[in-house]
């Protein structure tokens, strides 16, 4: 064996330690976040007997579905070291077009066509970021401003029309006592996890986020792959726009506004690095569920909106605090006397 062994051995100690726990940082994170959500639901039973029930779990899952779908896309963009601020505008776009073109019914191809349009918006973002080399923060913000303005002009201020039949069916019907959207979101989580963690595409996203120069040298097509992440994000946002339309039976121009920050927060709470290259979709799902649970529990307790917001912000900071590398290192490190 080579003489680099001694050095390797010194480092091996830390590597073995990391593996010693048998679970990765990401997994630990996801377990903590899901655990907190469950504790919160169970705990809320003590506050009010109406809470902590099966039906509340279903409500949480249904409400979390929007955030789960959104933060999947946001998570992919964050994974490649970007950030998608155009999400609210794309949600609105999806919602406005769905009510405008397919309100009440609609041909089978209209909804996919709308998603394709949203995908084009994502491609525009990707083009700006990878070809024009505009910082993602600015590029997606510009897209957001442009799109919001276009939606305003298109609707002249008031979106008309009702929900397409398919979206109403997705959001309003139940099957075996469980809302159809819950089945949908479970399938989505499975598919999303596979896409991010187990496909070649996902592997390339991690590589780009970890070190884009090195990924390029290794033969990863940085531009196209990064652009695809933005496209997926925009399609997710557009679909959430449709889901919201199905849920509320109509679109508004501000329907996406309240989803940008939670979409980032869910990813961050789920343990991803905002700088890219690290994270898992399961953790993000946990973050989305935790945020939604928190929202419903606080609302049920009857706290006013302000305090609810304060607590949400506090949770984000606390989550960040506990997810620092050092904190994890401490958890892993065996206690020495």
């Amino acid at each position: 064996m080579s003489v680099s062994e001694p050095k390797g051995a010194a480092f091996q100690a830390s590597a073995d330690l990391r593996r010693g726990g048998g679970i990765s940082r990401e997994t630990t994170n996801a377990i903590i976040v899901f655990g907190l959500s469950i504790l919160l639901i169970l705990g809320s039973r003590f506050v009010s007997p109406a809470l902590g029930s099966w039906s509340q779990v279903l409500t949480v899952l249904m409400l979390a579905s929007f955030l789960i779908v959104l933060s999947f896309g946001q998570g992919l963009v964050i994974l490649v070291g970007g950030l998608d601020l155009s999400i609210p505008a794309v949600i609105t776009l999806g919602g406005v077009l769905a009510t405008g073109w397919a309100g009440g019914g609609g041909d089978w191809y209209v909804l996919p066509a709308i998603l394709a349009i949203c995908g084009l918006v994502g491609a525009f973002n990707g083009f700006g970021v990878t070809v024009l080399k505009i910082p993602p923060f600015i590029m997606t913000m510009a897209t957001s401003i442009i799109l919001a303005s276009a939606a305003l002009g298109y609707t002249s201020g008031t979106p008309r029309g009702a929900s397409p039949a398919a979206m109403t069916a997705l959001m309003k019907t139940t099957w075996v006592g469980i809302p159809v959207v819950v089945y949908f979101v479970l399938l989505f989580v499975l598919a999303g996890w596979l896409l991010q963690s187990r496909t070649v595409f996902g592997r390339k996203l991690y590589a780009i986020g970890a070190n884009d120069q090195a990924a390029r040298v290794a033969g990863v097509a940085i531009g196209p792959v990064t652009t695809q992440a933005y496209v997926v994000s925009a399609i997710c946002a557009g679909f959430v726009g449709m889901m919201l339309v199905g849920y509320a039976n109509g679109a508004t121009l501000r329907m996406g506004d309240n989803y940008l920050l939670p979409s980032i927060a869910a990813v961050v709470i789920g343990g991803s690095s905002i700088l890219g290259g690290r994270g898992s979709f399961i953790g993000t799902v946990g973050g989305a569920v935790l945020l939604t649970t928190l929202g419903t529990v606080i609302a049920a307790i009857g706290l006013e909106q302000g305090w609810r917001t304060v607590i949400e912000g506090g949770i984000i900071v606390a989550a960040l605090f506990f997810m620092r590398e050092e904190f994890f290192a401490r958890l892993r490190r065996p206690k020495r006397s």
Binding site: T199, V200, Y206, A207, G209, A210, N211, A214, G219
Partner: peptide, 27 residues
Amino acid sequence: EGILSSLTAAGNITLPVAGRISRGGLV
């Protein structure tokens, strides 16, 4: 320009040939 620090050594080695370690679209 070389290593991808958050991936494993195996992940680094197989990155350019990621297509070869997947079956049915999955790695």
